[in-house]
């Protein structure tokens, strides 16, 4: 076992055990905090596929996070008010079932990611950042003006949605559900990184000319990466809204997109565990520093500056050095 897998296993184990410990020592708030971290980690793992593997600096991933959030909000809203979502040409009812909500979130964010990708992937560098940002703002302002679903105030859900066999109202159970999803997605993402697709995507980031001259289309590779990426972040959005039992336009905000990037840079760009470590550290800092001062973002800024200037590989890079090429 390499140092890296050891570290990753330890990180995952800590993520599983700390909330369990908090649960038994009667600290439900810590469990909720951990749930938040795990869900944000999931969102950032989604971004990692576009950013870390594909080199696509998307400043619009909040679009997918928000779509997931609103998928949950809207479906649950109609279920709790006993009004159908639409009646013509066929009736669609709301639902309080998490699996259905997740499916809707994933499908919608994939479709939107496909079209955003189609338009934005023609550009690169700063233009790509700007276009994705612009899409983010479009969705943000649309959500604000969408009065049917709360507009600026967002939507509240009275009771957390259900999952067969799990009492999602119990914090530790909902946590376990989120953790399992994160672990499963990370398993697939790890496979993806080493798959034929992952190899080609990685190469398309480093040497697109090379990828073309061996007969592969870098643009198409990036587009599929962007769709997968958006789908995962969308799923995280649905969970996030369920955690808070609330969704609002802030899920679409560019600050949200920025935070996802921060998680990745903080934890370690290019590594699958980077976004996880980054999200956990961020949530912990937000909690600890937030208690100390309302201006905790200043400290965060200093930390980020430090990481960017002195520890390019983020926290994991600092601890483990450069990633060794794997077999």
């Amino acid at each position: 076992m390499t140092r890296e897998t050891l570290f990753n296993s330890a990180a995952l184990a800590a993520l599983a055990l700390v909330p369990l410990w908090a649960h038994f020592s009667g600290e439900p708030f810590t469990v909720t905090l951990a749930t938040r971290a795990v869900i944000l980690a999931l969102a950032a793992v989604g971004l990692h596929i576009a950013l870390g593997l594909g080199g696509l600096v998307s400043l619009g991933h909040a679009v997918f996070f928000g779509i997931g959030g609103y998928a949950m909000g809207i479906l649950a809203h109609h279920a709790q008010t006993y009004t159908p979502l639409m009646e013509w040409p066929f009736v669609i009812e709301g639902t309080k079932s998490m699996p259905v909500i997740w499916l809707v979130a994933v499908v919608l964010s994939s479709v939107v990611a496909y079209f955003i990708g189609l338009l934005s992937l023609r550009t690169s560098g700063v233009y790509f950042i700007m276009i994705t940002l612009a899409f983010g703002q479009m969705f943000f302002f649309f959500a604000i003006s969408w009065s049917a679903y709360g507009g600026e105030d967002g939507l509240s859900i009275y009771v957390r949605n259900g999952f067969p066999g799990v009492n999602t109202l119990v914090p530790i159970q909902f946590y376990a559900l989120c953790f399992v999803i994160l672990a499963a997605v990370m398993f697939f993402a790890a496979r993806l990184q080493r798959s034929p697709f992952g190899l080609a995507l990685n190469a398309a980031r480093q040497a697109p000319d090379r990828v073309e001259t061996v007969g592969l289309n870098p643009m198409r590779l990036r587009l599929i990466a962007f769709v997968l990426s958006g789908a995962i972040t969308g799923l995280a959005g649905a969970l996030f809204a369920d955690l808070n039992r609330f969704v609002s336009p802030t899920m679409f905000s560019w600050q949200m997109s920025g935070e996802l990037i921060i998680f990745i840079i903080l934890g370690g760009l290019g590594r699958l565990y980077g976004p996880v470590v980054g999200a956990v550290v961020f949530v912990a800092l937000e909690h600890i520093l937030g208690d100390l001062s309302d201006y905790w973002h200043i400290y965060l800024g200093v930390l980020l500056l430090g990481v960017v200037l002195f520890a390019r590989g983020g926290i994991i890079g600092m601890l483990l050095g450069r990633e060794v090429a794997h077999d």
Binding site: R191, L192, V214
Partner: peptide, 13 residues
Amino acid sequence: LGGQGNPWRFFKP
């Protein structure tokens, strides 16, 4: 992989 022409495999290393 390029010569073979199918990069759309996401699971097998």
